[in-house]
Write a protein that binds this DNA or RNA. Sequence first.
DNA 1: CTCCATAAGTTGGTGGTTTT
DNA 2: AAAACCACCAACTTATGGAG
Length: 297
Amino acid sequence: MRLDRVDLNLFVMFDVIYSERNLTRAAEVLNLTQPAVSNALNRLRDVFDDELFVRNPRGMEPTPVADNIIAQVREALTLLNFSLNEGAVFDPLRTEKTFNLSMNDLSEFMLLPPLLEELTQQSSQIKTRCYYVSRDELVKDLASGQLDLAIDAPLVNSPNLMQVPLSSEDYVCVVRENHPEVKKKISIEQYIALDHVHVSSRRSGAGHVDIALQRMGLSRSIAVRVQHYMVAPRIIEHTDLAWTLPRALARRLNLKIVELPFELATLDWHLYWHKSADNDQANRWMRERLMAAASQQ
DNA sequence: CTCCATAAGTTGGTGGTTTT
DNA sequence: AAAACCACCAACTTATGGAG
């Protein structure tokens, strides 16, 4: 078999199938339908004259032949990928690329203004599209290239994802100015006595604050639970509710800030990208911009 | 029920031929 | 030599069958 008779894309598929051990998931990563991958695998089976993957309860398990060639295939793909990015020098001033970023509304609020300010100052043609992708879809979307980067809590783990800590914020409590009970400081008893706003993208389950309180044998009353950070400030303005939030956000609101009367772990955000984008100049450039934006807080 | 394979139909790209 | 045309084929899609 000669190389010029083989579709080199089949090796890309081989790499993904080997990682996923599942043709349906491999298809999602490759942005194809399941039968397309099934057919491609058949073509690859012809090339190697071997089954390459056999179905069993653990998924599509590689044959010894597949195990033998995977390392070389990956090495070759890495080299090809590298030469591809070498050739294309990324010029942020000329590229019209659209970056797709997954982040929640808090990250959007905190990071987009400094990021976009810098982009416009450089009169760059780069466009940004932000939408939140849930954690179970994140790895797939980053792998397929639908997403370039994601910002999330340090919970997402996958061998193919790269990550770097982006920011770390301690929490404070806010109430409206002229709140009848809360003055400059509050005790833990006062904190518990207040009714609270809680922000969480999940529909139920204990949050950060409540887990910390539980450890001390305490609990608080949550009057309203909402999914987005940016609705809470207006709720606080119009009620006597309290809200526990990252300090960097609190500083940007016209609300009374009081220090928490108990220890609470920081809120950490990580930046995620797929390992195939690690050497990509555009991706690397945007990572640096986001890290710079995060450090300006 | 989940996941892979196959069938049938569609489409976009390639190479060969003819026309300008 | 370039452009226009055409026929073919590979690889995709959707729909469906069938194995574990």
